[in-house]
């Protein structure tokens, strides 16, 4: 199937949200809403999101990629990023994808905190299935991990000649300001089982603590990817996350399921 160029768009109230719609060359047989992660994970996974969207569009699946308010090219300062607003933006984006694709049944995809937001807003966005790539399931654990990474960044000899002061590094996670609201919202969030099919694509290293069934329930399906992704590695902070395994696995699954 021929690959159509992605169509840039602005939608939501006042056109505040940025999106790229990957149309199919004929009518779409299904549609996927791609929810980005937050912060540096979003920049690192930009390439793989584009590659996956292109691959799915070639399979006849329409895709919308978008940025939450306060992230990427969408309006708003990075400090204004807000968990509840991300949730609302995802619902708005789902409406945009339905209108553009003509599909009523939508599948959600999200990596890391993008997966968490997809879990949190899937019901409100009337999604029918979720595909999650290494989603964050326990917000408070993740806040602790991000605080530790930020403190390591502050003193990273590969980045700074001298360790920076605590004040210089305060209120930020890995290059992005973090408002007290977002921190509190994330700190109190934990995933819960959903009344819809959920499939996790697992590329976390074996050493990382992750039990997908503990919070998502026994019905969750897990596809283990052969290569570990380098999330949460400070020395890879500015390296793109690339995962041909993920693109292949999601494409193979949706070739049959969508």
């Amino acid at each position: 199937m021929r690959l159509e160029p992605a169509q840039p768009c602005q939608f939501g109230t006042g056109g505040d949200l940025f999106g790229l719609y990957h149309a199919t060359s004929g009518s779409a047989r299904s549609a996927v809403l791609m929810c980005p992660p937050l912060g540096q994970d979003m920049i690192r996974s930009h390439r793989v999101y584009r590659q996956l969207a292109d691959a799915l569009a070639q399979q006849g699946i329409a895709v919308l990629r978008f940025d939450y308010y306060g992230s990427g090219d969408s309006a708003g300062d990075s400090a204004e990023l807000d968990w509840a607003r991300c949730r609302t933006d995802m619902v708005t984006a789902a409406g945009e994808l339905r209108a553009r694709s003509g599909c009523t049944r939508l599948i959600g995809f999200g990596a890391r905190l993008g997966g968490s937001i997809a879990l949190n807003a899937a019901t409100a966005a009337r999604l029918s299935e979720l595909l999650l790539w290494d989603p964050v399931l326990d917000g408070s654990q993740y806040v602790v991990a991000l605080d530790a990474l930020q403190d390591a960044l502050r003193a990273d000899p590969m980045r700074f000649g001298e360790p920076r002061t605590y004040e210089d590094a305060a209120g930020q996670w890995l290059g992005f300001p973090v408002g007290a609201g977002l921190r509190r919202q994330l700190d109190t969030w934990r995933a819960e089982p959903l009344p819809m099919p959920v499939r996790v694509f697992d590329s976390l290293p074996p050493t990382a603590a992750h039990d997908w069934n503990l919070l998502l329930g026994d019905a969750v399906n897990v596809t283990e990817l052969p290569t570990a992704a380098s999330w949460d590695e400070l020395d890879r902070l500015e390296h793109a996350i690339l995962s041909p395994d993920l693109i292949r696995a999601v494409g193979d699954y949706l070739r049959v399921a969508a």
Partner: peptide
């Protein structure tokens, strides 16, 4: 570098 148009840590947006 290879960072897309928003720039490192969204620097280009700022």
């Amino acid at each position: 570098g290879m960072v897309y148009r928003v720039g490192p840590f969204r620097l280009h947006v700022e």
